[in-house]
Structures are given as C-alpha cells and as structure tokens.
C-alpha cells in the first residue's frame, strides 16, 4: 500500500513538473485561425456584418460570433466557414444580392469628396469640386459610398454576364425524372427555325 502511494506520488511530481514546464515553454503565440477565417471572407470591407471590416469580423468569428452575417460572402461563404470551424450551417442573415459595382452619374456629381472618404478600398478618384469616378475593377460593391453622397449620384449597377465572364453550368443530373426516356440538352433558342430553306 505504502509503496503504491509512493509510486503514484512520484509519478505525480514528475508528470506535474513536466506538464508545468511544457505549458510555459511550448505556448502557442497568435491565432492562425483568424487568418484562415479572414481568407474566406470576401474582403469587400462593407461592414454589413456589423464589424468595421473583414478582419475585425474574422476576429469576432474566432471568438464565437455568428458565421452568417456576411451577405457578400453568400451562402457559399457561410458553408465554407462552417466547414472550417465545424459549426452548423445557418441561413444567411440577409438576402443575397447579385454582385454590383458603383457607378457615379458624372453629370450629377458635385465633387464633394465625401464618397472618396467613405470608400474602404480607395476605388474612387477625384478631387474637390472635380467630378469623381469609380475605378470599376477595384470596386467591391460594398455600397458604403451610397449614404454619404449628398446628391445621390451613385448607383449600383449589377454586373451582367458577358461572353468573357460566362461560366459553364453544372451539368444537370436529371436521371431521376427521365427514366429510360431520353433527354438531350439542346441550347435554348435551339434551331426550331431551320427546315429546308
């Protein structure tokens, strides 16, 4: 009995010392998780999540904030965050909007520079009393320039699909509905009109 207690006690002292030592020596600095979350966020810096920018939101998520507050990230963003963090997927806390860029109506703009100050990514150029313009490729579509504009000359223009930005669609797996009857995926507008001319 005594020897058993002695062995246990000795083990306790050694293991305790080891663990205590290791806890100081091998402390992990920083939080790589925030970087990972930040990598998923779309970096629009729009603040729609209620945090001032994407990085602060990433930090908040790491501390336990909801993951469904980022409308520009869309449902896919929520999904990826859920995958990363092992949390449950939630419906987006807002409606998903099509991607858009801001356009300044150059005739209405009075050159007040308010929008320039509001733009989080410096995508608006112009000077006081000079007409402003938006560098479309840099615009993240965050809409932060809309409220400050005193003359409401900024509008959001939805980015439409062009031949260059067009994407091949996911092939529809339609075996469920068709059974043995065949389907062919003919393009719309197909060529109904062609008969022997």
């Amino acid at each position: 009995m005594i020897s058993a207690i002695a062995v246990m006690a000795l083990g306790a002292v050694i293991l305790g010392a080891l663990l205590g030592y290791a806890s100081v020596k091998f402390k992990v600095e920083g939080d790589p998780l925030v970087d990972k979350i930040d990598g998923i966020l779309p970096q629009t810096q729009c603040g729609q999540c209620g945090f001032p920018g994407c990085r602060p939101y990433a930090e908040a998520i790491a501390k336990g904030a909801e993951i469904n507050l980022c409308p520009p990230g869309g449902a896919e963003g929520v999904q990826r965050l859920a995958d990363l963090l092992g949390r449950e997927v939630k419906a987006l806390d807002a409606e998903e909007k099509p991607k858009a860029v801001a356009i300044i109506d150059e005739n209405t703009c009075i050159g007040c520079t308010l929008c320039i100050q509001a733009c989080p990514v410096d995508a608006i150029v112009g000077a006081a009393k000079q007409m402003h313009t938006i560098i479309a490729p840099l615009c993240t579509g965050c809409e932060l320039c809309l409220p400050p504009c005193p003359v409401e000359c900024i509008s959001m223009q939805v980015i439409t699909e062009t031949v260059d930005s067009w994407k091949w669609k996911y092939p529809v797996v339609d075996i469920k509905t068709t059974g043995m009857t065949s389907t062919r995926n003919t393009p719309t507008g197909g060529a109904g009109g062609i008969k022997a001319a």
Binding site: A12, V13, G16, Y21
Partner: peptide, 27 residues
C-alpha cells in the same frame, strides 16, 4: 507570470496533492 521552472514546481506540487488525496480515498 511564472517562469518555466516555477510553473513546473507549482504543477508538481498541485498534482502531488491531488494524488495523495485521492489515493487516500481509494485506500
């Protein structure tokens, strides 16, 4: 604030106390 050896000593003592206590219960 504790340094590594200090921490080691503290953990060792606490774990020792727990072990003694619970081994006594078991006995």
């Amino acid at each position: 604030e504790l340094t590594a050896p200090g921490m080691a000593a503290r953990s060792a003592v606490i774990l020792f106390l727990f072990v003694i206590g619970f081994t006594a219960v078991l006995a």
